[in-house]
């Protein structure tokens, strides 16, 4: 994420003191150093409620992930219930795609299955009805 120029913020309902203990006793042992991003505490769930991911019955945040661009605009999000973890590679792919679109000032779009190096589309009136000539369905599935 640092290589992509993305600032990570993690949020849970745990206190900042528990964050410190988790970092000290488990996370730093997993990665061999301190957690490289701020760990935020949302003990009353107020932040989670703003993002619609606070589970009032369980009193915890669900696995919500929001990608916010430099203008403060939400470009994408994903929300999972607690038992299933995220796919970090897909998050990275989406960031690369949104950054590419932004770099081209929206003149290029990234079709299904896009990743860096693969073909983009340049939306214009001539492309309407002609995507099949320039883009193959297999592109969506190939690595």
């Amino acid at each position: 994420m640092q290589a992509l120029g993305v600032e990570v913020l993690s949020v849970s309902v745990d206190s900042i003191y528990v964050h410190k203990m988790w970092n000290t006793h488990e996370l730093s042992k997993m990665i061999g150093k301190d957690i490289p991003f701020p760990m935020l505490s949302d003990q009353d769930g107020s932040v989670g409620k703003k993002y619609g991911i606070y589970d009032e019955d369980a009193g915890v945040e669900t696995r919500g992930r929001f990608l916010i661009d430099p203008d403060g605009i939400v470009q994408g999000f994903e929300v999972l219930t607690p038992p299933v973890g995220r796919n970090i590679q897909e998050t990275i792919r989406q960031i690369q795609a949104f950054q590419h679109v932004r770099a081209t000032k929206g003149t290029e779009a990234t079709p299904a299955g896009w990743k860096p190096g693969k073909q983009t589309l340049k939306p214009n009136p001539d492309l309407v009805g002609n995507v099949w000539k320039v883009w193959k369905v297999s592109e969506a599935f190939e690595d």
Partner: peptide
């Protein structure tokens, strides 16, 4: 929100991050 980062406690506002890409991740618990 209150935050812990590299041994320090401080407050973080999302608005401080304007001009940067931000990945905001919620999770059930430490």
């Amino acid at each position: 929100a209150a935050a812990f980062h590299k041994g320090k406690f401080f407050n973080v506002s999302l608005s401080e991050y304007l001009g940067k890409w931000v990945l905001l991740c919620f999770y059930p618990g430490d």
